[in-house]
Design a protein around this nucleic acid. Sequence first.
DNA 1: TTGTATGCGTTATCAT
DNA 2: ATGATAACGCATACAA
Lengths: 330, 330
Amino acid sequence: MRKRATAKQVANAAGVSKWTVIRAFTEGASITDESKRKVLEAAAALNYTPNLLARSLATKSTGQIAVFVDDFANPQKLPFLETLTEQLQAVGRVAMLININHHFDHVHALLHADQRQVDAIILFGTAFRDETLTDRQLGNGTPPMFVLARDSQIEGVPAVVCDAELALREIVDHLHDKGYRRPGFMSGAPALSTALRRREYFSKFWSEKGISHIAHFAAEKYSFEAGALGIRNYLSSTSKDRIDVLMCENDILALGAMDEIRGKFGLSVPDDIAIVGFDNYELGGSSAYGLTTYEQPLREMVGVIIRMIKNEHDPETVTLPGRLVLRSST
Amino acid sequence: MRKRATAKQVANAAGVSKWTVIRAFTEGASITDESKRKVLEAAAALNYTPNLLARSLATKSTGQIAVFVDDFANPQKLPFLETLTEQLQAVGRVAMLININHHFDHVHALLHADQRQVDAIILFGTAFRDETLTDRQLGNGTPPMFVLARDSQIEGVPAVVCDAELALREIVDHLHDKGYRRPGFMSGAPALSTALRRREYFSKFWSEKGISHIAHFAAEKYSFEAGALGIRNYLSSTSKDRIDVLMCENDILALGAMDEIRGKFGLSVPDDIAIVGFDNYELGGSSAYGLTTYEQPLREMVGVIIRMIKNEHDPETVTLPGRLVLRSST
DNA sequence: TTGTATGCGTTATCAT
DNA sequence: ATGATAACGCATACAA
């Protein structure tokens, strides 16, 4: 039964004190080349590596970043998580993935992250009201928080988001140019929807073009199924003067809606109803869907969050431009 | 600036020793109700909760489970991660999500997980050769490992998988019943493919029905794009005696292939070529695809892994039955 | 039941 | 440059 070797054991083997061993493993510590060599040799023989747990306790820095996620229905979460974990690991951090759900809510998660002494908390696509926070005296002892891919609804907590105003302006301009005049908008979970501000700007820019009525569809949550359900009732009850274009708050809703429109109602996209999504999820680009959408600058967004975590960037909300992706659905 | 309160501070406030404070927070410790009440009161006032970092150092148990993932292209990873994190948190554990890639390989990850003293490592959809392990003297000091959703290729490391033999038997029976006689199989990344054994059983059961030639297509990896590429060359170079059914190693490959077959080559599914996938990814069920597939018992699989981690289940490979999902693509 | 001493494996600080 | 002392916050074992 090999156990992890400790600095003390290495010290004995190398004939030095354990502090010299520590120094051999500390960047820029003052130590002779000779000592360092002896230590590293002994360490290799004993398969020694520093215990990060003990190091964290002493330094009060764990290198662990809690990532809160409360919605796994959107497949776009996956590339985001990939980029996030990759970039975190590239700077010596590691992600603690925390699933926020009915059994484990934000308060639990916050307490847990705090108890584990994480260096920071990333609210990925999640946010919550200020009230739950003031209880916890946030901003004092708790780790710094950052919101990713949603507007922050918490005073003093910065967010990194894709520029919704710019995005919706480009989208509405495009739709208007294409000749669409009866727009509809489908939003997802109400609590999250407002933080995206997509509907808000969608209305605003249509209104600037003289169109003030936007049909609104509320999906229960962000999922394929919810997207289909969100439009079903409308399609079966309305046949004339229908919307001619539907913007959905994200791609997965849009794909669900498109599937319903074409598959279940036999309508044509974009001839009967055009569709726009948001995220540029890979499958939306398939020839089966050809979904026009808006791509978030995922790598850049994650990059900014990481620099904030490393204190290389002021903790202020950052808004990055995305990219309109035109396909056959419009 | 509020800092985290320590047991000692609570002890002072409550007028007891710090060990009594510890006992108040230790399940089943011997302590008077009166003392406990005083302690909890003081703790609440000071907003004290035990520091899990220090606890972990002392108990040598962190409650952290490293989850290795090396492929984020398959959207089915997301519901798996959701279930995994949810069930881990339900038993007081938490997931450390580790992205295995070119910059951070298995050996790095293993070392890292070990340094952080995780309680266990889950190789989720990942495995690697024995040789890299023997270096690290695995099975002695390192945390126990488990493979999820792949066969284990490591001696002594158990896996929890969906029963490939049963699955492929059902699939091949179904295809044969439907009258298909010229089967093809598309595999993904070679290193992972063999661990799934899907191709192996696909061949075996067709062979039992007297069909020994299986056209084989090798996709570079498991992604939509790779699925499309995997079949492109074949379709453009072969026009007669083509395969009449294509089984893909997972849904995302199948969707890519189907998109190529219908969208780019104008062929009909299932009339020209039928398609079968594996995983039952939600979008495969859309009317745009209607993909016949095989569903893995994700909750049960995760449940077994967790019981192994809790030592409530012998660390032996477990094979669970899935479910054939018939749709219009066959 | 409660208090004391000691250990977990590091790091920080000081002395040599 | 190296060794020694203290500290990080908690748990374990033992004594009272």
